[in-house]
Amino acid sequence: EITKEQQALMKLIVDAYNRHQIPQDVAKKLLQEQYSAEENFLLLTEMATSQVQVLVEFTKNIPGFLALDHEDQIALLKSSAVEAMFLRSAQVFSKKMPSGHTEVLEERIRKSGISEEFITPMFNFYKSIGELQMTQEEQALLTAITILTPDRPYVKDHQAVEKLQEPMLDVLRKLCVLQHPQEPQYFARLLGRLTELRTLNHYHSEMLSSWRMN
């Protein structure tokens, strides 16, 4: 059973997640088909910057986050930004998009100059997230849980972060049981994706340098 307090927490997180989206004019540019390699690089960079700004705005709404130590706030955001971005991008590939949009996006990423060795695990991740068919609530909570991971580098007060993450994990676990009664492993599968995300994060800086070189 989800308590009233948990309902309120969930609503807050989902509302914040939906309210803070990448501006439409930035997103629309991605679907224009004519582009050079240089334009593509600039556009994906602009998109990434916008995603980070949106992520910070979302995170400010997570109850208790702004009360954390300021440097811990930065450490958490810095180490989770890539993972949160992959999670949000995955949504684009798992949602039903207007005909042709997913293909344009996929082609743009494949032609961006990022090496194939990084592209393949990225699309594998998008596929595995797509298979889960997460609801908006699950997506938003999983993002909050990713950001509030206590064992990130340079985080000083692990306990304070854990205190914020635990209620989110609890709500998500209950939600999974309620929404997927036929799949007792669903919650574990969601958490498994977080491990996959960490691997993507690990290779991300390597991926960026190869991209810049190209």
């Binding site: 600039l42 960079t45 602009e46 910057t49 980070v52 700004q53 910070v56 705005e57 400010k60 300021h70 706030q73 930065i74 955001l77 810095k78 930004a81």
Partner: peptide
């Protein structure tokens, strides 16, 4: 432009709420 900033700079600016700067 923000695209010339590093990740930490973008985060710090966004946390302070002065995205326009």
């Amino acid at each position: 432009p923000a695209s010339n900033l590093g990740l930490e700079d973008i985060i710090r600016k966004a946390l302070m709420g002065n995205l326009e700067e």
